[in-house]
Design a binder for these strands. Structure first.
Lengths: 343, 343
DNA sequence: AAAATTAATGAAAACATTTGCATAACTATT
DNA sequence: AATAGTTATGCAAATGTTTTCATTAATTTT
């Protein structure tokens, strides 16, 4: 065989089956409208010719593209991997395919990605958080594609959202440390410039700490990206000092993991010498030794519900899609926090 | 404003700019063919109308769809998250968008996903490993879409591949343990039924162990999915026994991580009481305490090169795309393995 | 058995774009 | 100044589907 490229489109299938293209189309989309006998002929023709429908042609005709876009900061770290998986599972179960894009925490890049996904005529679009450029919000409004912000809940969000209240989460984590008697507190957060999740958590936590008149020594407040290696590194410096905090609030579990490793490496006992609390409760956090105390964000459920909302909006062809679903965060007390020792 | 849905297609832009649709198309695709002045008018019209090109229409016309498909078993665990990220970065950099699908280690599901991606007319397609159903291989051959298997290298692979030799990797890991004097060996692998990576590693390792006349007590060989929690669980049983191996070879770093936690939890010292070696060298493995000895698979580089190959194949519109790139695996000695104690 | 209804199929228009060919308006050459 | 060559643009065909409308065939009703 020379070139198998004898374009196998719907009319070649129709010819092979001895029917019209319209009938083939119907056999595929509304099988009940075509006689079983013809359907069988068509099935055989399809099988024989190795025909695969052209989704682009359907899309152009005005049908759904059958794709849903998801834009995340990154998928490399556990933070979003679980979410992506859950979202993809749910979306896929409903017959959609996922278009994935990641911007590395840069909101201008994100705008470009959103445009690209819109060029592909995604039927719906999910973003992470509510921090997005004005351009992004504008284009989403103009195109009127069902859009949903995943991860944080905000009763006044300009677009639909499914997630948790990050300020509350920061509060929960802070309260836990305060309740255990900690008054010398260190925090490790990523840059909060273009990350509303981290920003809300951090400022809420600081508020509580200040109200409790905790010592928030400047040098105990570190900034590091979401990376185990970098968090561990940063913590090695902090924890090696004689004058260190008694508790560490970490922006998320990845950072907390780094912090724990740093402590173990330095021979410090967690939680006796230092209490550590994370945020997220990612896969693996429960298995850490010692097991991580953290505030659980139900990533899988959030991802699944988000997908469900969007798929439903597409199916119902909703004009003005707007839902806001709030998930409750929950303190998961494990083994990395303990009552503060009186110094 | 009532409904912004005054379909803003290329002709409405053309009208607004006072030119023909063809000219607008050219301004977008071959800017050098249209006069700067007209280009400017068109730019303004586009800006004003909020026009976003319809990729589906281009695709249908025979142009590239601008998408590349990636089918993975899962993205939830660190195993593939890094790879997906690297692949996506590289693909995106070259102007493509990623269509992601995951099948949860089920090759029939995988076939369905591949078909779906082909319906979307992906310009190229990447799969993980070389274990795929006959249907999958057939449809890929028929459609003649540049396809590439990521993760393992095989000089006789039926499709292009970029990766490592998993048998070699299994050998490297086994040799390391043997060289350290271990003769009582436990292994923890996932089900090798539909996973050629694990299968190759495992059988190669067993070969070496047998050649060294190691004790491979049946009850020391465990099967568990790629999950920290389940691996830890399984290891708790194994390591609690009086009669336990002196070294553990883990199917990958995720499993190894679970094994380490199990050992720590039982108060065993790694590597004094038990040596543990992983495979993969995922993000975070170096930071573990104790740091994990493992065989490095350069996931990021593999993902990037894979994307590069595919993008190039698309750009050159290659008829018969076939490349095979081998990456060398490398033993990374860290702190979880040590010389076997004479019992 | 004729008329009316229903079921199955086909012809053709529509979808949003790209591109080959044709045309018109310049610019350069003699 | 007439001709040839170039450049910028428009027209219309083509891409692979779906769907409306029309037509024919089969079935039911009278």
């Amino acid at each position: 065989m020379k070139k198998q490229r004898h374009k196998t489109d719907i009319v070649s299938v129709a010819n092979l089956a001895g029917v019209s293209a319209a009938t083939v189309s119907r056999a595929l989309n509304h099988p009940d409208l075509v006689q079983p006998a013809t359907r069988k002929k068509i099935d055989q023709a399809i099988r024989k010719s190795g025909y695969i429908r052209n989704r682009a042609a359907q899309t152009i005709h005005g049908r759904r593209s059958g794709t849903i876009g998801l834009v995340v900061p990154t998928v490399a770290y556990a933070i979003f991997a679980e979410l992506v998986q859950a979202f993809n599972d749910a979306v896929s179960e409903r017959g959609f395919t996922l278009l994935l894009a990641s911007h590395g925490y840069d909101l201008d890049t994100e705008y470009g990605l959103v445009r690209k996904l819109l060029e592909h005529r995604v039927d719906a679009l999910a973003l992470i958080g509510l921090d997005h450029s004005a351009d992004t919000y504008r284009v989403l409004r103009e195109q009127n594609v069902p859009t949903l912000a995943i991860w944080n809940f905000d009763a006044e969000s300009p677009v639909s959202c499914v997630g948790v209240n990050n300020a509350e989460i920061g509060g929960i984590a802070a309260d836990h440390l305060i309740m255990l008697g900690h008054r010398r507190i260190g925090t490790i957060f990523p840059s909060t410039g273009e990350n509303d999740r981290a920003r809300s958590r951090k400022s809420a936590a600081f508020e509580r700490f200040r109200a409790a008149e905790a010592d928030l020594d400047e040098t105990w407040q570190i900034q590091t990206p979401y990376s185990i290696a970098q968090a561990k590194d940063a913590c090695l410096d902090l924890l090696a000092r004689q004058d260190r905090p008694t508790a560490l609030l970490c922006g998320n579990d990845v950072i907390a993991q780094g912090a724990i490793y740093a402590a173990v490496k330095l021979g410090l006992s967690v939680p006796k010498d230092i209490s550590i609390i994370g945020i997220g409760d990612f896969a693996g956090s429960a298995e850490l030794e010692p097991a991580l105390t953290t505030v659980r964000i139900p990533a899988r459920r959030i991802g699944a519900i988000a997908a469900e909302h969007l798929a439903a909006a597409v199916d119902r062809a909703e004009e003005d899609f707007l839902v806001r679903t709030r998930f409750e965060a929950e303190l998961i007390m494990r083994a990395t926090t303990a009552v503060a020792r009186t110094k």
